[in-house]
Simulated assay, not measured.
Amino acid sequence: MVVTFKHLEAFVWVADLTSFVRASERLNTTQPNISSRIATLEGLIGTPLFDRNGAKVHLTSKGQQLMSHARAVLAARDQFLQAADEKALTQGILRLGVTEMIVHAWLRTFTLALKAMFPNLAVELTVDMAAELERGLHARQLDLALINGPFQYPAASEPLGRYPMIWVAAPSLGLSGPLRTEDLAAHPILTHARGSWPHRLVADHFHVRSARLVPSSNLAACLQMTVDGMGVAVLPKAMANRELAEGALVTLDYPWTPDDLDFQARYQSEKAPGHVAKAASLAAQVATDFAAVNQ
């Protein structure tokens, strides 16, 4: 019996996720398989690598001593694959987190380009608020997050551009010309989900006015409600381009909007394999191409 890449992958992921179950999910196998790989590795080395007391597992002193070497071996394998420059050799799952704005802007273009670059790499997609996705990235539940700031945790990043927010409404509401705060407050104000950065900014702006904020965790539904004349909305312009072009929505002349959404492709460079960095760079190129046409 010899030490294999599978043994080292199990070792690294159990350590990073502090859980045999989560490591098995990350490596697309079963918890008994992960336990078997760790037990085999410990048998070959002749000493325990993990303390198994309590709900979480932690590295022993020997495990801590060997962890950097295990990462170096896996990094060397990744460098070999990059040097071979054969994209089909890159396999596994990329756990990708995106906000809903990316979904409605250029996610399809990105995933198609990613498939062309790495044909044997599967994408597991999570759509959520930026703050939740950043926490998932920090906990290593995600490999790559395409999210807007502000950011709480340090990470490697590729800029994805800034996306302006605009006020929009259905033409049937008859809102034209320079508008005052009370003009908007006369209608329900449809916003991002409660707890999101744009919602906080809108809530702060209207906090002393009698405005009715209607947050939504689904921006597509928020957009449709606005088209249907159920209120005014502040949304990323990139999401409303089609409706504006078709005349289903009009831009409102109001002197304040939330800050532009500053998007980045973020990942943990010290732990992520090379294809994650390449995927982040690809996202930056797709975002640049999208902005050239739509902004």
Rank of each mutant, 00 (worst) to 15 (best):
T47N: 05
L125K: 06
F5H: 15
S61I: 10
S157R: 07
P198S: 15
G92Y: 06
Q65D: 08
A70M: 13
L27D: 04
P236V: 11
P154H: 13
S36L: 10
L96Q: 11
H205Q: 10
M101H: 13
A221E: 13
L41G: 04
S176G: 05
R108P: 05
Q152C: 02
G97R: 11
R209N: 02
W13N: 12
A122P: 14
L235W: 01
P258H: 05
F206N: 06
V232P: 00
L59T: 06
P171R: 09
L8E: 14
C222M: 07
A131E: 04
L121C: 00
F206E: 03
P198R: 12
S269I: 04
R266A: 02
H275I: 11
H207K: 15
R209A: 04
R242W: 12
A287L: 15
L219R: 05
A193P: 00
W167R: 04
A211R: 01
R26S: 14
G54Q: 01
V98Y: 04
V57F: 06
R200D: 15
L235A: 05
K62I: 07
G97V: 13
E243A: 10
E86V: 06
E246T: 15
M67Q: 03
R77F: 07
N28C: 07
S196N: 10
L173A: 08
W106I: 03
Q141L: 12
L121K: 02
D128K: 08
E158P: 14
R140Y: 11
V123T: 15
Y254L: 10
L219S: 05
S19P: 01
P188Y: 05
T40M: 02
A156H: 08
N294L: 15
A265R: 00
S217N: 10
T40E: 04
S172W: 05
M117G: 07
V57E: 03
P273S: 11
V286I: 14
K62W: 01
Y267A: 09
G174F: 02
E182N: 12
P188H: 01
